[in-house]
């Protein structure tokens, strides 16, 4: 009975065959799925970045503004919103700024080229979700998170904010164009 006290000697009870087999399988499985994580850093190409810096929101904002000014190639509007369209050269440092409730700018990238994406927020937490890829990263104020990305399909993507950030959180939708 599991609701009554147990007499001494229970520690010495041997395991039954089924228990032994199942616990062995479970243990091997647990070790395997632990090893899978470091292993993917060597054999896989999709990993959470380990490059990050602390930076004040003001400093990050200045860098992002400079970046947008330097590579601006147009503007785009939707509803009451307006964005700069920015076309950075392949291999460059690019910025994606989260703020209540907008992702800036609209990035135009080239398929198969690699970029260093600096992700951060200048107010509260935001969540970067590249749709419909369903790639998700956190934008944290005070932290410059550098994601080295290589877009592999040409397409117009949406960026959905998936970390609750206030009243118009659901309206915070941006765009990345891959050509």
């Amino acid at each position: 009975m599991s609701i009554t006290p147990v007499p001494p000697g229970w520690w010495k009870m041997p395991l039954h065959k089924e228990e032994k087999i199942w616990i062995s399988i479970a243990l091997i499985w647990c070790i395997a799925i632990t090893i899978a994580m470091p292993a993917w850093h060597f054999v896989g190409q999709q990993n959470s970045s380990q490059e990050y810096y602390t930076i004040s929101a003001e400093d990050y904002n200045t860098l992002a503004e400079d970046f947008m000014e330097k590579y601006k190639t147009g503007t785009e509007t939707a509803g009451d919103w307006e964005w700069d369209v920015v076309t950075p050269p392949p291999g460059s440092d690019i910025f994606l700024r989260g703020m209540q409730w907008k992702w800036d700018p609209i990035l135009k990238l080239k398929k198969g080229e690699t970029y260093r994406l600096h992700l951060s927020s200048i107010d509260v937490l935001h969540g970067l979700s590249i749709h419909p890829l369903n790639m998700n990263f956190e934008a944290v104020p005070g932290w410059d998170y550098v994601l080295t990305i290589t877009p592999t399909q040409a397409k117009e993507y949406r960026i959905i904010c998936n970390e609750f950030c206030g009243a118009d959180h659901h309206g915070m939708i941006g765009k990345i164009i891959v050509e």
């Binding site: 899978a36 993917w40 896989g44 190409q45 999709q46 959470s48 970045s49």
Partner: peptide
């Protein structure tokens, strides 16, 4: 899930 993961952009 690992298969789905291998289909997204390269990121690191």
């Amino acid at each position: 899930n690992w298969k789905f993961l291998s289909e997204i952009w390269i990121v690191g």
